[in-house]
Amino acid sequence: MTTETRELFERYHACWVDRDPDRIVELHTADSIFHLHSGQEPARGRAAIREAAVGTFALLPDLAFHQISWRGGEDFWAVQFQMIWTSATGNRVCVDLADYVLIENGAVKEKHSYVDGVAMQAALG
Protein backbone atom coordinates (compact mmCIF):
# COMPACT_ATOMS: atom_id res chain seq x y z
CA MET A 1 0.00 0.00 0.00
CA THR A 2 1.15 3.51 -0.68
CA THR A 3 0.25 6.61 1.28
CA GLU A 4 -0.97 8.23 -1.95
CA THR A 5 -3.45 5.41 -2.58
CA ARG A 6 -4.88 5.62 0.93
CA GLU A 7 -5.14 9.42 0.72
CA LEU A 8 -6.93 9.21 -2.63
CA PHE A 9 -9.33 6.64 -1.16
CA GLU A 10 -10.05 8.91 1.83
CA ARG A 11 -10.75 11.93 -0.41
CA TYR A 12 -12.86 9.86 -2.79
CA HIS A 13 -14.86 8.18 -0.04
CA ALA A 14 -15.51 11.57 1.58
CA CYS A 15 -17.12 12.74 -1.69
CA TRP A 16 -19.54 9.79 -1.58
CA VAL A 17 -20.28 10.35 2.11
CA ASP A 18 -20.97 14.03 1.35
CA ARG A 19 -23.12 13.04 -1.67
CA ASP A 20 -21.15 15.38 -3.93
CA PRO A 21 -21.18 14.16 -7.56
CA ASP A 22 -19.07 17.08 -8.78
CA ARG A 23 -16.23 16.27 -6.38
CA ILE A 24 -16.58 12.56 -7.18
CA VAL A 25 -15.97 13.08 -10.89
CA GLU A 26 -13.07 15.47 -10.25
CA LEU A 27 -11.20 12.47 -8.84
CA HIS A 28 -11.84 10.33 -11.97
CA THR A 29 -9.78 10.33 -15.14
CA ALA A 30 -11.53 11.83 -18.18
CA ASP A 31 -12.04 8.36 -19.70
CA SER A 32 -12.89 6.63 -16.44
CA ILE A 33 -15.39 3.80 -16.01
CA PHE A 34 -17.82 3.30 -13.12
CA HIS A 35 -19.54 -0.07 -13.26
CA LEU A 36 -22.14 -1.11 -10.72
CA HIS A 37 -22.21 -4.84 -11.39
CA SER A 38 -25.91 -5.43 -10.84
CA GLY A 39 -27.24 -5.46 -14.36
CA GLN A 40 -26.45 -1.92 -15.50
CA GLU A 41 -24.12 -0.93 -18.29
CA PRO A 42 -20.93 0.82 -17.16
CA ALA A 43 -20.95 4.61 -16.94
CA ARG A 44 -18.13 5.85 -19.17
CA GLY A 45 -16.61 9.30 -18.77
CA ARG A 46 -17.13 11.96 -16.14
CA ALA A 47 -20.56 13.14 -17.32
CA ALA A 48 -22.03 9.63 -17.22
CA ILE A 49 -20.37 8.89 -13.88
CA ARG A 50 -21.81 12.11 -12.45
CA GLU A 51 -25.28 11.06 -13.70
CA ALA A 52 -24.88 7.65 -12.06
CA ALA A 53 -23.92 9.24 -8.74
CA VAL A 54 -26.84 11.69 -8.89
CA GLY A 55 -29.18 8.77 -9.58
CA THR A 56 -27.81 6.82 -6.62
CA PHE A 57 -28.26 9.76 -4.25
CA ALA A 58 -31.82 10.37 -5.53
CA LEU A 59 -32.74 6.70 -5.02
CA LEU A 60 -31.07 6.46 -1.59
CA PRO A 61 -31.07 9.98 -0.09
CA ASP A 62 -29.80 8.92 3.35
CA LEU A 63 -27.21 6.45 2.04
CA ALA A 64 -24.37 5.80 4.48
CA PHE A 65 -21.41 3.44 4.40
CA HIS A 66 -19.94 1.26 7.12
CA GLN A 67 -16.43 0.17 6.15
CA ILE A 68 -15.63 -3.47 6.90
CA SER A 69 -12.18 -3.84 5.34
CA TRP A 70 -9.72 -2.05 3.07
CA ARG A 71 -6.71 -3.25 1.08
CA GLY A 72 -4.63 -1.23 -1.32
CA GLY A 73 -1.53 -1.16 -3.45
CA GLU A 74 0.29 1.28 -5.66
CA ASP A 75 -2.42 1.38 -8.33
CA PHE A 76 -5.57 -0.07 -6.73
CA TRP A 77 -7.73 -0.47 -3.67
CA ALA A 78 -10.38 -2.97 -2.67
CA VAL A 79 -12.85 -2.18 0.07
CA GLN A 80 -15.81 -3.95 1.64
CA PHE A 81 -18.73 -1.88 2.94
CA GLN A 82 -22.21 -2.23 4.23
CA MET A 83 -24.47 0.27 2.50
CA ILE A 84 -27.10 1.52 4.94
CA TRP A 85 -30.25 3.51 4.20
CA THR A 86 -33.90 3.84 5.12
CA SER A 87 -36.37 2.04 2.87
CA ALA A 88 -39.56 3.62 1.56
CA THR A 89 -41.41 1.82 4.36
CA GLY A 90 -39.12 3.33 7.00
CA ASN A 91 -37.05 0.21 7.69
CA ARG A 92 -33.27 0.32 8.06
CA VAL A 93 -31.58 -1.58 5.22
CA CYS A 94 -28.02 -2.95 5.13
CA VAL A 95 -26.62 -4.39 1.90
CA ASP A 96 -23.10 -5.69 1.28
CA LEU A 97 -20.94 -3.85 -1.25
CA ALA A 98 -17.40 -4.48 -2.49
CA ASP A 99 -15.47 -1.91 -4.53
CA TYR A 100 -12.43 -2.64 -6.66
CA VAL A 101 -10.79 0.57 -7.89
CA LEU A 102 -7.93 0.97 -10.36
CA ILE A 103 -5.82 4.14 -10.20
CA GLU A 104 -3.96 5.92 -12.99
CA ASN A 105 -1.86 9.05 -12.49
CA GLY A 106 -3.36 9.74 -9.06
CA ALA A 107 -7.00 9.47 -10.17
CA VAL A 108 -9.71 6.80 -10.35
CA LYS A 109 -9.45 5.03 -13.71
CA GLU A 110 -12.01 2.27 -13.06
CA LYS A 111 -14.44 1.70 -10.21
CA HIS A 112 -16.15 -1.68 -10.09
CA SER A 113 -18.85 -2.00 -7.44
CA TYR A 114 -20.27 -5.41 -6.59
CA VAL A 115 -23.48 -5.30 -4.58
CA ASP A 116 -25.57 -8.07 -3.08
CA GLY A 117 -28.18 -7.82 -5.82
CA VAL A 118 -30.76 -10.09 -4.18
CA ALA A 119 -30.71 -8.06 -0.97
CA MET A 120 -30.73 -4.80 -2.93
CA GLN A 121 -33.76 -5.80 -5.03
CA ALA A 122 -35.61 -7.00 -1.93
CA ALA A 123 -34.92 -3.69 -0.19
CA LEU A 124 -35.99 -1.58 -3.16
CA GLY A 125 -38.80 -3.91 -4.28
Rank of each mutant, 00 (worst) to 15 (best):
F9N: 05
F9G: 02
E10N: 11
R11N: 09
R11S: 10
R11F: 04
R11L: 06
Y12A: 05
H13S: 09
H13K: 08
A14Y: 06
A14K: 11
A14S: 15
C15Y: 00
C15S: 14
C15R: 08
W16A: 02
W16F: 08
W16Y: 05
V17H: 02
D18M: 07
R19K: 15
R19T: 05
D20F: 03
D20C: 06
P21N: 06
P21C: 05
D22F: 03
D22M: 05
R23Y: 00
I24H: 00
V25K: 00
V25H: 01
V25T: 12
E26K: 02
L27W: 05
H28F: 14
H28R: 12
H28G: 12
T29C: 14
T29Y: 06
T29S: 13
A30I: 08
A30Y: 06
D31H: 10
D31F: 09
D31L: 10
D31G: 15
S32K: 05
I33K: 07
F34Q: 13
F34H: 14
H35G: 09
H35W: 15
L36Q: 14
H37R: 13
H37P: 06
H37Y: 13
H37K: 14
S38L: 11
S38G: 10
S38W: 14
G39S: 08
G39I: 10
G39W: 07
Q40L: 12
E41F: 08
P42Q: 10
P42T: 08
A43K: 00
A43S: 13
A43E: 03
R44G: 09
R44Q: 15
R44T: 15
R44S: 13
G45Y: 03
G45K: 02
R46M: 02
R46Y: 00
A48N: 04
A48F: 01
A48L: 04
I49Y: 00
I49P: 00
I49N: 00
I49E: 01
I49F: 01
I49R: 01
I49T: 01
R50G: 04
E51I: 02
A52D: 09
A52V: 03
V54T: 09
G55N: 10
G55I: 06
G55V: 08
G55T: 07
G55Q: 10
T56W: 07
F57P: 08
A58E: 15
A58L: 13
A58W: 04
L59D: 12
L60G: 10
